[in-house]
Amino acid sequence: MNDLMTTAQVAELIQRPIETLRYWRWRGEGPTSFKIGRSVVYERSDVESWLRAQKAATSAGGAPAV
């Protein structure tokens, strides 16, 4: 399995508040996440793929796909 990241680590990487990631998770948006016990984690490769998709969506002039 790829490197796992916490919500705080992902928030720091994408320069958004932790609350934003929690909101996106609640809405089913944002990078793919899952739980290990009570902890929400993200695979680094999923976060990087999501970032590439955001870049592609906004570079093409479209609205960002959250």
Rank of each mutant, 00 (worst) to 15 (best):
L13Q: 12
R16I: 08
E12S: 12
I14K: 05
W24H: 03
S33H: 00
K55E: 14
R44L: 13
P17M: 00
Q54F: 00
W50P: 02
L51W: 09
I36R: 12
T58M: 15
E19I: 10
L13G: 00
A11H: 00
N2M: 11
T58W: 05
E12F: 07
G62F: 12
E12M: 09
Q54T: 02
D46S: 13
E29C: 11
T20W: 05
E29Y: 13
G28S: 01
D3A: 15
R52E: 10
R27M: 11
W24C: 03
L51D: 07
R38N: 13
R22V: 06
Y23F: 14
G28N: 06
M5Y: 09
T58N: 07
K35W: 01
I18L: 06
A65G: 10
Q9K: 03
S33N: 04
A60Y: 07
D3T: 15
Q54R: 08
V66I: 15
Q15E: 11
V41R: 06
R38P: 02
S33V: 01
E19G: 08
L4N: 01
V66W: 15
Q54C: 04
A60Q: 14
Q15H: 09
E43C: 13
G62R: 13
V40F: 03
S49I: 12
E29M: 13
R22M: 06
D46H: 13
F34R: 03
M1D: 12
E43R: 15
G62Y: 13
V47D: 04
Y42H: 03
A65Y: 08
I14P: 05
I36L: 14
D3V: 15
P64T: 05
V10H: 03
G61Q: 10
T58Y: 09
A63R: 14
A11C: 04
G37Y: 10
T7H: 04
E12H: 11
G28A: 05
W50C: 06
V66C: 09
F34E: 09
R38I: 10
S49D: 14
A57L: 05
R44E: 11
F34Y: 06
E29I: 08
V10N: 01
W24A: 00
T6C: 04
G61A: 14
S33R: 01
Y42S: 03
T58Q: 13
V47F: 05
G37P: 04
G30E: 02
P31S: 08
K55T: 14
I14D: 09
Y42E: 03
W26Y: 13
A63Y: 10
A53P: 02
A65P: 00
A56G: 06
G28Q: 06
V10S: 03
T7I: 07
V10K: 01
P31N: 07
W24S: 02
G30P: 01
P17V: 06
A56W: 07
R27S: 09
G61N: 09
M5K: 14
G30L: 02
E29D: 11
A53T: 12
W50A: 03
A56V: 12
W24D: 07
F34Q: 02
A57I: 03
W26H: 14
Q54D: 01
P31T: 08
I18C: 00
M5H: 05
